[in-house]
């Protein structure tokens, strides 16, 4: 564990907290993409299958990972519940039209071609990594459709992007300190994912400089 990874994970937790805070305080999920949340649910549930096989108390790191994995899975499920049940009437279904089945299919094909080992777990893991790298797209697409972006929604995306950026630093750090060399899959997809966020950052910072509300082109 290094400071970059810990910082990244904490930003990830903050982003989830912001998301739930936005929904709970405004009693609305307007501007949020249910499709992105569903993709994250798929990502977490295909990546964290090792929860069933790893002893949480094996080491401090597995304990930490277990807690975080359960947190991500449960908060993701709760967010979907809020959007689909409790605040369903505020959900912007008309604009949230990104076709996620194509993303899922593409991630599945890529995972079948590129994986670290030919096992079900490794292929599902690769699938989750591919899918995570594009999971934010429906959310960005929705923001583009509706134009103006609420502050808290942009903070949510900003935190997610920060989490990905810190993970890249984490990988550079581990490359040199632990000589981790075989993580090309996570590195490649993580970089693509970060670039998608960088595009959002650009407009976010632009709107900040002009002191205006964020508008995506």
């Amino acid at each position: 564990m290094n400071i970059f990874r810990l910082g990244g994970d904490m930003l990830h937790v903050v982003s989830i907290f912001l998301l739930l805070l936005k929904i709970q305080t405004s009693h609305s999920c307007a501007g949020l993409s249910l499709k992105t949340q569903i993709l994250y649910m798929v990502v977490f549930s295909t990546r964290y299958l090792d929860l069933f096989f790893t002893k949480p108390w094996h080491s401090a790191l597995t304990f930490y990972n277990t807690i975080m994995k359960i947190l991500f899975l449960s908060s993701s499920a709760y967010t979907i519940y809020l959007m689909q049940k409790r605040y369903k009437h505020t959900y912007d279904k008309v604009h949230d039209t990104f076709r996620i089945q194509y993303l899922i299919a593409a991630a599945a094909v890529l995972a079948l071609i590129f994986h670290l080992r030919l096992t079900v777990f490794e292929i599902l893991w690769a699938f989750s990594v591919f899918l995570e790298s594009v999971a934010i797209l429906p959310q960005l697409f929705l923001l583009q459709e509706t134009g103006e972006v609420e502050n808290i929604t942009s903070h949510y995306i900003f935190c997610l992007g920060g989490y990905r950026t810190l993970y890249i630093f984490n990988w550079v750090w581990r490359y040199f300190t632990e000589h981790r060399r075989n993580q090309w899959l996570a590195w490649g997809c993580g970089t693509v994912q970060t670039l998608i966020y960088a595009d959002f950052f650009y407009y976010y910072i632009l709107s900040r400089k002009q002191g205006k509300k964020l508008r995506l082109p």
């Binding site: 994970d9 299958l49 790893t54 597995t62 777990f121 993970y167």
Partner: peptide, 10 residues
């Protein structure tokens, strides 16, 4: 499974 492949990140 996780440790074997070195997936120790989230």
């Amino acid at each position: 499974v996780a440790a074997e492949s070195g997936h120790d990140e989230l």
